[in-house]
Design a protein around this nucleic acid. Structure first.
Lengths: 209, 209
DNA sequence: TACTGTGAAATATTTCACAGCA
DNA sequence: TGCTGTGAAATATTTCACAGTA
């Protein structure tokens, strides 16, 4: 019922439920049962109900869940019922992909500035986002304080960027560089290392009968 | 000791250990203790030792682990001691980032062909990879059978591509499209939905004191 | 001595199964 | 009746703590 210690995996699943509910909503679906939503998400229905029960009661016994109401509840739980301005460090191929990824602003995650060290990139505007020199980072963050910083630099630059972010008051970092960041524990860091997923796939492929 | 049912999270951590060991190796480090490697990976040392113990004994009591030997062992366990040819569907911004991501071929994951529906992209060569029309997919996979298919298309095309992949004998799919794929259980599917990570970050940011 | 390897204990997560209710 | 919500049971994972050994 309370939010005392919510497992990361539960938070992740809530985000997944929200994604699937968005699709149901787009299809004009009004009602959904835990069984149906769970199946669409690839999880057990008791688990879905348990995940929700950490935060309250959102369904109607004998009936199910209202699709728009449940989506609204989950968004409020996740904090995606508001806008989250963000900055990006590293305008390489992945950085470009992030700047151009429409689903992020649709969900409230909006880049307000990007940074790079490459002279050829500095001054460009990508999808309405200006690319600054990394040296302007303290100044830009002072002018436009944001809570979320995204790192899409090469591994060797990532820690330095993280330190800069943290020094300028960034509270949450999403790190796509393949390196573990050191950080104080009042800063939230999520790591996303794409190459690890390929390794995992290789492992399970090898032991397919 | 045996590989009966290895938790996905253990496999993921093994990949992480390999990544950190690679860095240690590059620094010329010969020996590492479970404590030191675990700290660099952000995990408990007993957990690291337990993870390894599913597969054998790789250390020396009182001494630690040989960095190059442990790395070799983990690579063999993961299946990253060989090359994995792959195909890509979807040459948008994310697809481009994947085609240009040097760490993948360094670890043996090599795209041999890419596919798209956009006439403007078909026929281009990106980082030595030719972009075919999606209609040529059956033919190309017949000529060059591969086990891994990567999906970086918009959500609405992903299931159709997955079905094509599976029909052509692909055994493992890494799906970056924000949709849950239906698939027979002799096909391994890993989902990577980047937007879910942003949601998770928002959740933990909101409850930072 | 200084570590690994690993049963056993502790903890966390998932699933069951059914009471409760529209 | 047909669902949700949730204690309790089952299962999975992590951590402890120490025997084993180079």
């Amino acid at each position: 019922m309370s939010d005392f210690r919510i497992p990361g995996i539960t938070v992740y699943r809530l985000a997944l439920y929200a994604r699937v509910l968005e699709n149901f909503l787009a299809e004009g679906k009004e009602l959904v049962s835990s069984e149906e939503l769970a199946r669409a998400c690839g999880v057990n229905s008791a688990q879905l109900r348990k995940d929700l029960s950490y935060f309250g009661q959102f369904g109607v016994r004998g009936v199910g869940y209202s699709v728009p109401a449940l989506l609204k509840h989950i968004r409020r739980i996740l904090g995606t019922d508001r806008e989250w301005p963000m900055v990006l460090a590293g305008v390489g191929h992945l950085g470009l992909a992030l700047l151009n990824y429409d689903l992020l602003p649709q969900r409230g995650f909006k880049f307000v500035a990007a940074f790079d060290v490459d002279e050829k990139k500095i001054g460009r505007v990508i999808n309405d986002v200006y690319v600054y020199s990394i040296e302007q980072l303290p100044w830009v963050l002072k002018e436009h304080p944001v809570e979320i910083g995204v790192i899409a630099t090469p591994a060797k630059a990532a820690q330095e960027v993280a330190d800069l972010f943290i020094a300028q008051g960034i509270k949450g970092i999403l790190n796509f560089a393949p390196v573990r960041l050191k950080h104080p524990k009042n800063v939230v860091v999520e790591h996303s290392d794409i190459t690890l997923l390929f390794d995992k796939l290789a492992f399970y492929l090898r032991r397919l009968d």
